[in-house]
C-alpha cells in the first residue's frame, strides 16, 4: 500500500496516491492539486474533460477514509489559477466542503494560487511549521533540512531489461522531501531535470515511485533522463 520514509528524523508514510501522512500528528499532506486545470484550458478553447476536479476530489475522499487525518495540508497550486473558484462546479465546491468537515484544512499559497478562492473554506497560510517540519509550496535552494514542498511535480523514469516506466514520485535525501503532484491533470518533471539540482546538490537521493498500489523506493542513480 504505502512506504515509510523519514524526513529529518520524522517518520512519514508515502501513499501510492502521492499523499504524505504523518501518523504522529495525523497530518495528511498533498501537493499541486491543480483544481480546474481542465476549465483553464477550455478558456483557451482546448476542451479537456471537465472532470479533473471531481477526479482529484474522489481520490482525496478515499484518503480521508483510509487515514482519517486531523489536519490536511494542501501544499500550494491547489487551484490552477486565481479564477478557478468561479469556474468550479457547485457539486465540486460542496465536495471540498464535505472533505473539510471535522478537520483542519490548510491551503498553503502557491504560485498558481497566491490566495485560495473565496468560494472555499479553510485556513490560508504562506507556510506551516508542524512536527519539526516546514511545509511550503516552493522548495528553497540550498542545504535546507526539514522541508516538505511541492511545486516541481517530480517524476522518475526507471528502466530494467524488460523496458522502462515513468511514474510520479516523492524525492528525498532524508533531510527534505518534494511531493509528487496530486492533481488529475498535473504532469511530471523528471527528477534528473536541472530544477532539482539546487535542492539536493550532489547528495544521494531516494525516489519513492508511485506504483499501481504501492510505493517503490528506488535509488536516484537508477533514474534515467527522459
Amino acid at each position: 500500500m504505502s512506504g515509510g520514509l523519514a524526513i529529518n528524523g520524522v517518520a512519514c508514510v508515502a501513499d501510492a496516491s502521492g499523499a504524505l501522512f504523518l501518523e504522529s500528528e495525523r497530518l495528511l499532506v498533498v501537493a499541486d492539486l491543480h483544481f480546474e486545470k481542465g476549465s483553464a484550458y477550455a478558456a483557451r478553447r482546448i476542451f479537456l474533460p471537465p472532470y479533473d476536479t471531481a477526479a482529484t476530489l474522489a481520490r482525496l475522499a478515499r484518503l480521508m477514509l483510509r487515514y482519517a487525518p486531523r489536519t490536511v495540508v494542501a501544499l500550494g497550486d491547489s487551484f490552477h489559477d486565481v479564477r478557478a473558484g468561479e469556474r468550479m462546479h457547485t457539486l465540486d465546491l460542496s465536495g471540498i466542503e464535505s472533505l473539510q468537515r471535522g478537520r483542519d484544512w490548510i491551503w498553503i499559497a502557491g504560485n498558481h494560487d497566491p490566495d485560495a478562492p473565496a468560494q472555499v473554506g479553510g485556513e490560508r497560510r504562506a507556510e506551516l511549521r508542524a512536527a519539526g517540519l516546514t511545509f511550503r509550496h516552493e522548495p528553497q535552494a540550498g542545504d535546507v533540512t526539514g522541508e516538505v514542498a511541492g511545486h516541481l511535480h517530480p517524476a522518475a523514469r526507471v528502466a530494467s531489461q524488460s523496458g522502462s516506466t515513468r511514474r510520479r514520485c516523492f524525492v528525498t535525501d532524508g533531510a527534505r522531501c518534494v511531493l509528487p503532484a496530486f492533481g488529475a491533470f498535473a504532469g511530471g518533471l523528471n527528477v534528473r531535470d536541472a530544477a532539482f539540482a539546487p535542492l539536493f546538490g550532489a547528495r544521494d537521493v531516494i525516489v519513492h515511485a508511485l506504483g499501481r498500489d504501492r510505493v517503490y523506493a528506488v535509488h536516484g542513480s537508477r533514474c534515467l533522463a527522459d
Binding site: 530494467s160 524488460s162 523496458g163 531516494i206 506504483g211 517503490y216 523506493a217 528506488v218 535509488h219 537508477r222
Partner: peptide, 22 residues
C-alpha cells in the same frame, strides 16, 4: 522482442530490490 504483459510495476520492483540489496 519486448516481453508483454503487465510487467510495468515489475520494473519498479526490480529497481527497488537493488536498493534493498545495497
Amino acid at each position: 522482442e519486448p516481453v508483454y504483459g503487465e510487467a510495468q510495476d515489475q520494473i519498479l520492483a526490480e529497481a527497488a530490490e537493488d536498493l534493498v540489496a545495497e
